[in-house]
Design a protein around this nucleic acid. Structure first.
Lengths: 147, 147
DNA sequence: CCAATCATTACCGAAACGGTAGGGATTGAA
DNA sequence: TTCAATCCCTACCGTTTCGGTAATGATTGG
């Protein structure tokens, strides 16, 4: 339940890959420049994204990263959990002594659970395609310039 | 968009006040013991809750805290924002250089905005009454014991 | 060969987190 | 009138996390 710069940068980066999907690998340096992300920091994020199976790395000159699946099949939840760890409530994740003398479980647990669920729904329901689509893909820009 | 121990403890504390609503002030020390909260830490939280107009303090011996409004009229959002500050997306809160050469705004902004909105909805839609209600109020427990 | 690129590990300053400490002001009750 | 209980305020403090930077190695296209 905590979102840091990792998620912000990471989602931007994979949106970039979604925009160029099908055109071969894109280097981390290129993305860092285009999106205004500290290059060495982005490199670290790509390590996590690769280990999570979201991107494939191509090493060596002319190397870079590509999405392992079409943008429509990758959600923001995939990316966020790859970078921040499992999305769960940061509060009340253990059982705790109760109050009100009635229940043995935390009285506030229901609201934290609903919050986590709502967040998960938003992230799981947002694909890279939908985010990249709002600004158009590179491909579509190219085909538009044909006119 | 970050929830810390402040929210966890704070919501527990006001649930406690909701359970005892109408029975006069309850001391922070009492609540701390009942709910397993570090007493001095809870004291600090009550300062914020009082300044936010959520609780009223009664000083001196036999003093303590009471809710300023009925539990049905206080939401978890009120409490969380009193303790953590305004609930907003911790990422992408500034405009940022774009990518894909199409838009001047952050490509990921929509999903962060939806996330914040979803979280806000959950918190604003959860009252202290509904949380205290799941475990029964002290009053109801008392009336039950009359039988 | 060499430049570009990813891979890995270590490090580091600043901020936030999760409290603790010490004192002061107020008030009910003995 | 004293005293204990309680809230009030400010400061402090050790640890962890955040947001990177640095150094170095491995791989590969040209």
């Amino acid at each position: 339940m905590r979102l840091t710069a990792k998620s912000e940068y990471g989602v931007l980066a994979v949106i970039d890959l979604a925009c160029t999907y099908g055109s071969g690998p894109v280097s981390a340096r290129q993305i860092a420049e285009r999106r205004g992300i500290p290059p060495r920091f982005l490199e670290q994020l790509f390590v996590s994204l690769r280990r999570a199976g979201i991107v494939t790395a191509v090493r060596g000159a002319r190397g870079g990263f590509t999405l392992t699946r079409p943008p429509a099949q990758i959600t923001v939840l995939d990316v966020v959990e790859a970078l921040e760890g499992p999305l769960q409530s940061s509060v009340c994740d253990q059982e705790r002594e109760s109050g009100c003398g009635k229940s043995a479980s935390c009285a506030a647990a229901p609201v934290w659970a609903r919050a986590t669920h709502a967040l998960r729904d938003v992230f799981a329901g947002t694909t890279l395609e939908s985010l990249a689509g709002t600004q158009g893909t590179f491909d579509r820009r190219d085909s538009a310039s044909i006119i």
